[in-house]
Design a protein around this nucleic acid. Structure first.
Lengths: 171, 171
DNA sequence: ATGAGATTGAGAATCATACTCAATAAACTG
DNA sequence: CAGTTTATTGAGTATGATTCTCAATCTCAT
Protein backbone atom coordinates (compact mmCIF):
# COMPACT_ATOMS: atom_id res chain seq x y z
CA UNK A 1 0.00 0.00 0.00
CA UNK A 2 1.36 3.38 -1.01
CA UNK A 3 2.30 5.76 1.73
CA UNK A 4 0.22 8.82 2.39
CA UNK A 5 1.15 11.34 -0.33
CA UNK A 6 1.86 14.94 0.62
CA UNK A 7 -1.06 17.29 0.26
CA UNK A 8 -1.86 20.80 1.31
CA UNK A 9 -3.28 21.45 4.74
CA UNK A 10 -6.65 23.20 4.68
CA UNK A 11 -5.34 26.66 5.34
CA UNK A 12 -4.42 29.54 3.06
CA UNK A 13 -1.04 29.09 1.47
CA UNK A 14 1.43 31.87 2.30
CA UNK A 15 3.31 33.29 -0.68
CA UNK A 16 6.90 33.85 0.42
CA UNK A 17 9.14 31.62 2.52
CA UNK A 18 9.43 34.23 5.26
CA UNK A 19 5.71 34.84 5.34
CA UNK A 20 5.27 31.11 5.27
CA UNK A 21 7.22 30.57 8.42
CA UNK A 22 5.55 33.40 10.23
CA UNK A 23 2.10 32.20 9.21
CA UNK A 24 2.75 28.60 9.99
CA UNK A 25 4.22 29.49 13.33
CA UNK A 26 1.39 31.86 14.07
CA UNK A 27 -1.11 29.23 13.14
CA UNK A 28 0.63 26.59 15.20
CA UNK A 29 0.69 28.83 18.25
CA UNK A 30 -2.95 29.73 17.82
CA UNK A 31 -3.89 26.10 17.46
CA UNK A 32 -1.96 25.27 20.62
CA UNK A 33 -3.80 27.97 22.48
CA UNK A 34 -7.18 26.77 21.23
CA UNK A 35 -6.48 23.22 22.26
CA UNK A 36 -5.12 24.23 25.64
CA UNK A 37 -8.21 26.32 26.27
CA UNK A 38 -10.53 23.53 25.29
CA UNK A 39 -8.80 21.03 27.55
CA UNK A 40 -8.64 23.49 30.42
CA UNK A 41 -12.38 24.07 30.04
CA UNK A 42 -12.88 20.35 30.47
CA UNK A 43 -10.49 20.03 33.41
CA UNK A 44 -8.07 18.01 31.36
CA UNK A 45 -4.36 18.66 31.65
CA UNK A 46 -2.41 19.53 28.54
CA UNK A 47 0.60 17.37 29.27
CA UNK A 48 3.68 16.68 27.23
CA UNK A 49 2.32 13.41 25.83
CA UNK A 50 -0.91 15.03 24.73
CA UNK A 51 0.91 18.01 23.32
CA UNK A 52 3.15 15.97 21.06
CA UNK A 53 0.14 14.07 19.74
CA UNK A 54 -1.63 17.30 18.83
CA UNK A 55 1.50 18.81 17.31
CA UNK A 56 2.16 15.68 15.35
CA UNK A 57 -1.38 15.62 13.98
CA UNK A 58 -1.21 19.32 13.17
CA UNK A 59 1.86 18.65 11.04
CA UNK A 60 0.39 15.56 9.41
CA UNK A 61 -0.80 15.68 5.86
CA UNK A 62 -3.67 13.28 6.47
CA UNK A 63 -5.33 11.15 9.13
CA UNK A 64 -2.80 9.13 11.11
CA UNK A 65 -3.14 5.84 12.92
CA UNK A 66 -1.80 5.25 16.42
CA UNK A 67 1.05 3.21 14.97
CA UNK A 68 1.89 5.92 12.44
CA UNK A 69 1.82 8.58 15.12
CA UNK A 70 4.07 6.45 17.26
CA UNK A 71 6.51 6.33 14.36
CA UNK A 72 6.25 10.10 13.86
CA UNK A 73 6.77 10.83 17.52
CA UNK A 74 9.42 8.29 18.34
CA UNK A 75 9.88 6.09 21.37
CA UNK A 76 9.49 8.91 23.90
CA UNK A 77 5.78 8.14 24.14
CA UNK A 78 4.87 4.48 24.54
CA UNK A 79 1.97 3.11 22.53
CA UNK A 80 -0.25 2.60 25.53
CA UNK A 81 0.08 6.27 26.47
CA UNK A 82 -0.52 7.25 22.90
CA UNK A 83 -3.78 5.38 22.80
CA UNK A 84 -4.77 6.96 26.08
CA UNK A 85 -3.91 10.42 24.83
CA UNK A 86 -5.92 9.87 21.68
CA UNK A 87 -8.89 8.69 23.72
CA UNK A 88 -8.70 11.74 25.97
CA UNK A 89 -8.33 14.12 23.04
CA UNK A 90 -11.22 12.47 21.27
CA UNK A 91 -13.35 12.90 24.39
CA UNK A 92 -12.49 16.57 24.40
CA UNK A 93 -13.38 16.89 20.73
CA UNK A 94 -9.87 17.88 19.73
CA UNK A 95 -9.31 14.86 17.61
CA UNK A 96 -11.65 12.86 15.40
CA UNK A 97 -11.38 9.17 14.63
CA UNK A 98 -11.66 8.11 11.04
CA UNK A 99 -12.60 4.47 10.60
CA UNK A 100 -11.67 4.09 7.00
CA UNK A 101 -9.68 1.00 6.27
CA UNK A 102 -9.32 -2.48 7.57
CA UNK A 103 -9.21 -2.70 11.34
CA UNK A 104 -7.12 0.37 12.05
CA UNK A 105 -8.46 3.73 13.10
CA UNK A 106 -6.88 6.95 11.91
CA UNK A 107 -7.22 10.27 13.67
CA UNK A 108 -7.26 13.83 12.46
CA UNK A 109 -7.76 17.17 14.15
CA UNK A 110 -11.40 18.08 14.68
CA UNK A 111 -12.99 20.43 12.16
CA UNK A 112 -12.98 23.42 14.49
CA UNK A 113 -9.20 23.11 14.41
CA UNK A 114 -8.52 21.98 10.86
CA UNK A 115 -11.46 23.30 8.86
CA UNK A 116 -14.42 21.48 7.34
CA UNK A 117 -13.58 19.11 4.55
CA UNK A 118 -14.62 15.93 2.81
CA UNK A 119 -12.79 12.73 1.98
CA UNK A 120 -11.59 11.10 -1.19
CA UNK A 121 -10.94 7.46 -0.39
CA UNK A 122 -8.79 5.51 -2.83
CA UNK A 123 -10.10 1.99 -3.16
CA UNK A 124 -6.76 0.78 -4.46
CA UNK A 125 -4.16 2.14 -2.06
CA UNK A 126 -6.43 3.02 0.83
CA UNK A 127 -5.21 6.58 1.06
CA UNK A 128 -7.70 9.08 2.41
CA UNK A 129 -7.32 12.57 1.03
CA UNK A 130 -8.97 15.61 2.53
CA UNK A 131 -10.70 18.00 0.14
CA UNK A 132 -12.10 21.40 0.82
CA UNK A 133 -14.85 22.46 -1.50
CA UNK A 134 -15.98 25.97 -2.43
CA UNK A 135 -18.65 27.64 -0.31
CA UNK A 136 -21.23 27.41 -3.07
CA UNK A 137 -20.87 23.65 -3.21
CA UNK A 138 -20.74 23.37 0.55
CA UNK A 139 -24.03 25.25 0.72
CA UNK A 140 -25.61 22.69 -1.54
CA UNK A 141 -24.29 19.87 0.61
CA UNK A 142 -25.59 21.50 3.76
CA UNK A 143 -29.02 21.95 2.24
CA UNK A 144 -29.13 18.33 1.12
CA UNK A 145 -28.08 17.18 4.56
CA UNK A 146 -30.82 19.19 6.18
CA UNK A 147 -33.51 17.99 3.80
CA UNK A 148 -32.50 14.36 4.13
CA UNK A 149 -32.32 14.57 7.91
CA UNK A 150 -35.66 16.30 8.19
CA UNK A 151 -37.29 13.57 6.14
CA UNK A 152 -35.86 10.94 8.48
CA UNK A 153 -36.55 12.68 11.81
CA UNK A 154 -32.82 12.85 12.39
CA UNK A 155 -31.00 15.76 14.08
CA UNK A 156 -27.88 16.39 12.02
CA UNK A 157 -24.78 17.52 13.74
CA UNK A 158 -22.17 17.12 11.08
CA UNK A 159 -21.66 15.37 7.80
CA UNK A 160 -19.01 13.90 5.59
CA UNK A 161 -19.18 13.22 1.94
CA UNK A 162 -16.97 10.25 1.21
CA UNK A 163 -16.09 9.73 -2.40
CA UNK A 164 -14.60 6.40 -3.24
CA UNK A 165 -12.58 5.77 -6.35
CA UNK A 166 -9.03 5.87 -7.63
CA UNK A 167 -6.63 8.60 -6.59
CA UNK A 168 -4.46 10.28 -9.17
CA UNK A 169 -1.52 7.97 -8.45
CA UNK A 170 -3.54 4.79 -8.77
CA UNK A 171 -5.49 5.66 -11.91
CA UNK B 1 -25.67 0.76 23.29
CA UNK B 2 -29.13 0.29 21.85
CA UNK B 3 -29.60 -2.57 19.48
CA UNK B 4 -30.14 -1.93 15.82
CA UNK B 5 -33.78 -0.84 15.53
CA UNK B 6 -35.96 -2.41 12.86
CA UNK B 7 -36.14 -0.47 9.66
CA UNK B 8 -37.50 -1.09 6.22
CA UNK B 9 -35.29 -2.71 3.66
CA UNK B 10 -34.78 -0.56 0.59
CA UNK B 11 -37.37 -2.27 -1.54
CA UNK B 12 -40.99 -1.58 -2.27
CA UNK B 13 -43.25 -2.73 0.53
CA UNK B 14 -45.90 -5.24 -0.60
CA UNK B 15 -49.42 -4.50 0.49
CA UNK B 16 -51.12 -7.76 1.47
CA UNK B 17 -49.73 -10.69 3.46
CA UNK B 18 -50.06 -13.03 0.54
CA UNK B 19 -48.48 -10.61 -1.87
CA UNK B 20 -45.87 -9.94 0.75
CA UNK B 21 -44.78 -13.52 0.89
CA UNK B 22 -44.75 -13.89 -2.82
CA UNK B 23 -42.77 -10.71 -3.28
CA UNK B 24 -40.31 -11.43 -0.54
CA UNK B 25 -39.78 -14.90 -1.83
CA UNK B 26 -39.50 -13.65 -5.36
CA UNK B 27 -37.04 -11.06 -4.30
CA UNK B 28 -35.02 -13.52 -2.29
CA UNK B 29 -34.84 -15.89 -5.21
CA UNK B 30 -33.86 -13.13 -7.59
CA UNK B 31 -31.16 -11.95 -5.21
CA UNK B 32 -29.84 -15.48 -4.93
CA UNK B 33 -29.68 -15.75 -8.69
CA UNK B 34 -27.88 -12.42 -9.02
CA UNK B 35 -25.29 -13.39 -6.45
CA UNK B 36 -24.81 -16.83 -7.94
CA UNK B 37 -24.32 -15.30 -11.36
CA UNK B 38 -21.82 -12.77 -10.09
CA UNK B 39 -19.78 -15.42 -8.29
CA UNK B 40 -19.90 -17.75 -11.26
CA UNK B 41 -18.63 -14.93 -13.48
CA UNK B 42 -15.67 -14.60 -11.17
CA UNK B 43 -15.03 -18.34 -10.92
CA UNK B 44 -16.00 -18.38 -7.29
CA UNK B 45 -18.14 -21.20 -5.96
CA UNK B 46 -21.41 -20.40 -4.25
CA UNK B 47 -21.05 -22.84 -1.40
CA UNK B 48 -23.26 -23.46 1.59
CA UNK B 49 -21.19 -21.27 3.90
CA UNK B 50 -21.27 -18.36 1.48
CA UNK B 51 -24.94 -18.85 0.80
CA UNK B 52 -25.95 -18.64 4.44
CA UNK B 53 -23.93 -15.46 4.84
CA UNK B 54 -25.69 -13.82 1.90
CA UNK B 55 -29.10 -15.03 3.06
CA UNK B 56 -28.43 -13.85 6.55
CA UNK B 57 -27.38 -10.41 5.34
CA UNK B 58 -30.38 -10.22 3.03
CA UNK B 59 -32.65 -10.78 6.01
CA UNK B 60 -30.79 -8.36 8.24
CA UNK B 61 -32.21 -4.98 9.03
CA UNK B 62 -28.83 -3.25 9.06
CA UNK B 63 -25.12 -3.86 8.67
CA UNK B 64 -23.95 -6.89 10.64
CA UNK B 65 -20.59 -7.70 12.15
CA UNK B 66 -18.94 -11.09 11.80
CA UNK B 67 -19.82 -11.87 15.40
CA UNK B 68 -23.43 -10.84 14.91
CA UNK B 69 -23.69 -12.92 11.76
CA UNK B 70 -22.21 -15.85 13.60
CA UNK B 71 -24.96 -15.46 16.17
CA UNK B 72 -27.60 -15.23 13.45
CA UNK B 73 -26.31 -18.27 11.63
CA UNK B 74 -25.48 -20.51 14.55
CA UNK B 75 -22.56 -22.83 15.14
CA UNK B 76 -22.84 -24.58 11.79
CA UNK B 77 -20.36 -22.10 10.32
CA UNK B 78 -17.23 -21.45 12.40
CA UNK B 79 -16.00 -17.89 12.75
CA UNK B 80 -12.89 -18.47 10.71
CA UNK B 81 -14.96 -19.67 7.77
CA UNK B 82 -17.34 -16.80 8.23
CA UNK B 83 -14.52 -14.31 7.94
CA UNK B 84 -13.26 -16.09 4.88
CA UNK B 85 -16.68 -16.06 3.30
CA UNK B 86 -17.05 -12.36 3.98
CA UNK B 87 -13.64 -11.68 2.44
CA UNK B 88 -14.52 -13.65 -0.67
CA UNK B 89 -17.90 -11.99 -1.00
CA UNK B 90 -16.32 -8.60 -0.53
CA UNK B 91 -13.80 -9.38 -3.27
CA UNK B 92 -16.67 -10.27 -5.56
CA UNK B 93 -18.47 -7.06 -4.68
CA UNK B 94 -21.46 -8.84 -3.18
CA UNK B 95 -20.89 -7.47 0.26
CA UNK B 96 -19.60 -4.12 1.47
CA UNK B 97 -17.73 -3.47 4.70
CA UNK B 98 -18.85 -0.61 6.83
CA UNK B 99 -16.17 0.60 9.21
CA UNK B 100 -18.36 2.59 11.51
CA UNK B 101 -17.62 1.99 15.14
CA UNK B 102 -14.68 1.10 17.30
CA UNK B 103 -12.70 -1.88 16.11
CA UNK B 104 -15.46 -3.92 14.55
CA UNK B 105 -16.43 -3.98 10.92
CA UNK B 106 -20.00 -4.44 9.82
CA UNK B 107 -21.09 -5.70 6.43
CA UNK B 108 -24.08 -5.05 4.24
CA UNK B 109 -25.11 -6.18 0.79
CA UNK B 110 -23.56 -4.16 -2.00
CA UNK B 111 -25.62 -1.42 -3.57
CA UNK B 112 -26.34 -3.33 -6.76
CA UNK B 113 -28.13 -5.83 -4.52
CA UNK B 114 -29.67 -3.59 -1.90
CA UNK B 115 -30.08 -0.25 -3.66
CA UNK B 116 -28.09 2.97 -3.37
CA UNK B 117 -28.45 4.71 -0.06
CA UNK B 118 -26.75 6.98 2.44
CA UNK B 119 -26.09 6.67 6.14
CA UNK B 120 -27.39 8.42 9.20
CA UNK B 121 -24.96 7.72 12.01
CA UNK B 122 -26.18 8.33 15.54
CA UNK B 123 -23.39 9.74 17.64
CA UNK B 124 -25.11 8.65 20.81
CA UNK B 125 -26.09 5.02 20.29
CA UNK B 126 -23.87 4.27 17.32
CA UNK B 127 -26.69 2.98 15.19
CA UNK B 128 -26.23 3.36 11.45
CA UNK B 129 -29.44 3.85 9.54
CA UNK B 130 -29.72 3.54 5.79
CA UNK B 131 -31.65 6.25 3.96
CA UNK B 132 -32.72 6.32 0.39
CA UNK B 133 -33.18 9.76 -1.06
CA UNK B 134 -35.36 10.89 -3.97
CA UNK B 135 -33.88 10.87 -7.47
CA UNK B 136 -33.82 14.66 -7.65
CA UNK B 137 -31.63 14.86 -4.55
CA UNK B 138 -29.49 11.97 -5.68
CA UNK B 139 -28.87 13.80 -8.95
CA UNK B 140 -27.57 16.76 -7.02
CA UNK B 141 -25.30 14.55 -4.97
CA UNK B 142 -23.97 12.86 -8.09
CA UNK B 143 -23.23 16.19 -9.69
CA UNK B 144 -21.42 17.44 -6.60
CA UNK B 145 -19.38 14.24 -6.44
CA UNK B 146 -18.36 14.62 -10.06
CA UNK B 147 -17.40 18.26 -9.71
CA UNK B 148 -15.40 17.69 -6.55
CA UNK B 149 -13.62 14.70 -8.01
CA UNK B 150 -12.79 16.48 -11.23
CA UNK B 151 -11.24 19.33 -9.30
CA UNK B 152 -9.04 16.86 -7.40
CA UNK B 153 -8.04 14.63 -10.32
CA UNK B 154 -9.86 11.78 -8.65
CA UNK B 155 -11.80 9.07 -10.49
CA UNK B 156 -14.97 8.55 -8.51
CA UNK B 157 -16.48 5.14 -8.34
CA UNK B 158 -19.03 5.51 -5.62
CA UNK B 159 -19.93 7.81 -2.82
CA UNK B 160 -21.57 7.90 0.56
CA UNK B 161 -23.01 10.82 2.36
CA UNK B 162 -22.66 10.18 6.07
CA UNK B 163 -24.74 12.38 8.26
CA UNK B 164 -23.84 12.36 11.92
CA UNK B 165 -26.21 13.43 14.62
CA UNK B 166 -28.89 12.07 16.91
CA UNK B 167 -31.38 9.50 15.73
CA UNK B 168 -35.04 9.87 16.57
CA UNK B 169 -34.75 7.61 19.63
CA UNK B 170 -31.78 9.45 21.09
CA UNK B 171 -32.99 13.00 20.57
C1' DA C 1 -15.56 -42.50 -10.90
C1' DT C 2 -10.97 -39.85 -10.52
C1' DG C 3 -7.59 -36.39 -9.94
C1' DA C 4 -6.60 -31.30 -9.52
C1' DG C 5 -7.81 -27.58 -7.28
C1' DA C 6 -10.88 -25.05 -4.18
C1' DT C 7 -12.98 -24.91 0.33
C1' DT C 8 -13.73 -25.97 5.06
C1' DG C 9 -12.94 -26.74 10.29
C1' DA C 10 -10.42 -26.29 14.20
C1' DG C 11 -7.08 -24.28 16.30
C1' DA C 12 -3.18 -21.31 16.92
C1' DA C 13 -1.14 -16.81 15.68
C1' DT C 14 -1.28 -11.88 14.93
C1' DC C 15 -2.54 -7.24 15.35
C1' DA C 16 -4.82 -3.24 17.16
C1' DT C 17 -6.48 -1.63 21.20
C1' DA C 18 -7.61 -1.66 26.31
C1' DC C 19 -6.46 -2.51 31.03
C1' DT C 20 -3.48 -2.82 35.47
C1' DC C 21 -0.66 -1.02 38.81
C1' DA C 22 3.30 0.98 40.74
C1' DA C 23 5.97 5.25 39.92
C1' DT C 24 5.78 10.14 38.75
C1' DA C 25 4.14 14.67 37.93
C1' DA C 26 0.79 18.40 38.38
C1' DA C 27 -2.42 21.10 40.93
C1' DC C 28 -4.03 22.50 45.39
C1' DT C 29 -3.78 23.75 50.39
C1' DG C 30 -2.18 25.99 53.77
C1' DC D 1 7.46 26.54 49.64
C1' DA D 2 6.46 21.72 51.95
C1' DG D 3 2.88 18.45 52.14
C1' DT D 4 -1.21 16.37 50.30
C1' DT D 5 -4.28 14.91 46.86
C1' DT D 6 -5.38 13.52 42.32
C1' DA D 7 -4.30 12.86 37.49
C1' DT D 8 -1.07 10.91 34.41
C1' DT D 9 2.52 8.02 32.74
C1' DG D 10 5.34 3.63 31.62
C1' DA D 11 5.79 -0.96 31.14
C1' DG D 12 3.80 -4.84 30.83
C1' DT D 13 -0.05 -7.85 30.30
C1' DA D 14 -4.78 -8.96 28.66
C1' DT D 15 -8.51 -8.86 25.35
C1' DG D 16 -11.03 -9.10 21.22
C1' DA D 17 -11.27 -9.03 16.28
C1' DT D 18 -9.36 -10.85 12.43
C1' DT D 19 -6.10 -13.84 9.85
C1' DC D 20 -3.33 -17.83 9.07
C1' DT D 21 -2.14 -22.93 8.92
C1' DC D 22 -2.84 -27.40 7.56
C1' DA D 23 -5.05 -31.58 7.22
C1' DA D 24 -9.57 -33.26 5.82
C1' DT D 25 -13.35 -32.65 2.58
C1' DC D 26 -15.76 -31.25 -1.21
C1' DT D 27 -16.42 -29.76 -6.45
C1' DC D 28 -15.84 -29.73 -11.00
C1' DA D 29 -14.03 -31.08 -15.38
C1' DT D 30 -12.54 -34.99 -17.43
Amino acid sequence: MRQVPPHLPPRARPSTPLQAELNVEGHARQLERQVEQRLRDNDIRYTRGRRVVVESLAESDGPRSAAELSGDIGPSVPLSSLYRSLAVLEQAGVVIPHHGARTITRYELAEWLSGHHHHLVCSNCGFVEDVEIPESQEDQVRKLVEDISAAAAFSPNGHALEIEGLCSQCT
